[in-house]
Simulated scan of single mutants.
Amino acid sequence: MWRKISAVVIPTVIAVGILAYMLWRVWDDLVITIASAHPLYLAAAVIVCTAAWFLRGWRYRAILGGLTVRVGLIFSTACIFLSQTANLIVPARLGDLVRLFILKHERLATYSQGFSSIVVERVFDVVTVAVLGLLALPFVLDVPDWFLPLIAVPIIGGIAFALFLWFVGDRHSENRILAVIYRIFAEIRAVSLNLQAVLILGASSIAIWLVDIAVCTVVVLMFGEWIPFPVIVLAVVIGNLVKAVPITPGGVGTYEFALAVTFELAGMAPATATVIAVVDHLIKNGVTLFGGIASLYYFGDWSVSLMKRSFSEGISREELREP
């Protein structure tokens, strides 16, 4: 029991501590900075952020289609909303497991199909973000030395993972655990390692992250700031790559810190950089939470108990077997 409590409490305390430190060091300038905000930009940022979610839903629908799981756009978007809402509460991105149960309950998909779809989505997300950061680097001056390896590692890792899947090929095993692993490899390879999939998933991933960057751009404009677009791209890239390490639920605290540091390195005032980072993430998490609540109504009451069961019991070996 204490292990489960500490797994939630400790990451939450870390997130609150990071945010508290960031706000404390610029507290005297916060009121002036917030007073300069233009409220209309807030509505625009929310609309743009919502559009990004439906783009994510469209891409996830395409991924599931490659796994022979047919769903609609609303269904696929609701799946992502619900799992990402869970990620705001549960550490280590365990909220993603909610999708496995939704797909099993609603579409009779296997757990391996659900897991494979999440892996494909995550790989395309991380690699796309890193590539956008790599493209932005030449246009940003005085970039810290640690930015390059942070961006290069996901790209190299993505290439290595693709090569690994390619050379593993189609394998089978009598061992139940190995059979599941080989099946997941085969599913990931089938849905991602072909020209059509790379073009569709790659193009949609770029569109998703450009829209995500557009949200941050609108927030920058909301506070009357002007900063080169490549700097905003790099800030969002660094923020999301740092957030990808599941230190805190939803990357709260770590994302804001990375975003603010990048803006400050580009010459932005610390108070303004902090407020922009906090508001940007607050908008994105707020839309996520609203979408997650709406998704609970969409799926019905069973989804609440299903989420609880997924975290309290986990997935057994028997459940991982093909139906």
Rank of each mutant, 00 (worst) to 15 (best):
L306Q: 03
F263R: 08
E256T: 12
W302E: 05
R183M: 09
L221C: 06
V252W: 01
I14D: 01
F167D: 07
W27P: 00
D96N: 00
M22P: 09
F167G: 08
T12M: 10
S205A: 06
L103D: 00
G65Y: 03
V140L: 08
G291D: 02
T262Y: 02
F124W: 13
S204L: 04
S192P: 07
M222A: 06
P249L: 08
A51T: 15
G95A: 09
P270W: 09
L94G: 04
N175H: 09
E318F: 00
V48E: 01
T254D: 09
R59Y: 15
A260S: 12
I32Q: 12
E256Y: 08
K243P: 04
A152Q: 09
L19R: 03
A51H: 12
K284E: 13
E318V: 00
E313P: 01
F223A: 12
W302P: 10
V129R: 14
P91L: 03
G300Y: 06
I232F: 05
I10Q: 12
V143A: 02
G224R: 01
F229A: 15
V129N: 15
R56K: 14
D28H: 09
L221G: 05
I177S: 07
S310E: 03
G250L: 02
I177W: 04
F229L: 09
A277M: 01
V48M: 11
V198P: 13
F54S: 13
Q196L: 05
A277S: 04
L82K: 13
L296C: 12
A7G: 09
